[in-house]
């Protein structure tokens, strides 16, 4: 039950795969801090445990009210999430609280199906598209030690193709 400071790169916890987590008191406590920290951070729609310095596979997300959201599952809090299906692709500019003052264009699936466990131990499946799907992929990447910079697909606008001159 606490707002924790956001860990910033180059903290090593952000670049290492996180360990899976058993449902129970520890998972509930970590996820409670995740939600408190997300709620306390302006415009924050999701946060993963490594971002509060905890190397565990847990994240929370809530895109309620975001103007780019189509699907909206409300508050999602999962441990050990897996993307079990995805479809489509779209490039959009992302930033991250753990890498402030920097944004990049990242290609993400348009729709994803995510399976995971609530901190109390219930199985949950989320089907998401558009912004919610992007947020899920961004948070789950954190659990694998991946930052958006690991997935940048172009320098600036995707408009100018690399042209070959012979």
């Amino acid at each position: 039950m606490a707002v924790r400071p956001i860990v910033r790169y180059p903290a090593t916890v952000l670049k290492a795969p996180a360990a899976s987590l058993e449902p129970g008191d520890e998972a509930v406590a970590i996820c409670s801090d995740l939600v408190d920290t997300m709620r306390a951070s302006p415009a924050c729609v999701g946060i993963a445990a490594p971002q509060i310095g905890v190397a565990a596979r847990a994240f929370c997300m809530d895109v309620t009210g975001h103007r780019k959201a189509r699907s909206c599952s409300g508050l999602v809090v999962l441990i050990n999430p897996e993307i079990v299906a995805h479809d489509g692709a779209k490039v959009a500019r992302e930033g991250c609280m753990s890498l402030p003052d920097c944004t990049g264009n990242v290609r993400r699936a348009l729709t994803v199906t995510v399976r995971g466990t609530t901190p109390e131990g219930a199985e949950r499946e989320i089907v998401a598209d558009a912004f919610e799907a992007r947020a899920l992929q961004h948070e789950i990447d954190h659990l694998d030690g991946l930052l958006f910079l690991d997935r940048v697909s172009s320098l600036t606008a995707d408009l100018f193709p690399r042209k070959r001159y012979s």
């Binding site: 924050c44 930033g95 947020a135």
Partner: peptide, 13 residues
């Protein structure tokens, strides 16, 4: 020519 002027969109996740 056509001109568009939009806020730079970047979603902090």
């Amino acid at each position: 020519v056509d001109v568009a002027f939009n806020p730079m969109e970047a979603d902090t996740l």
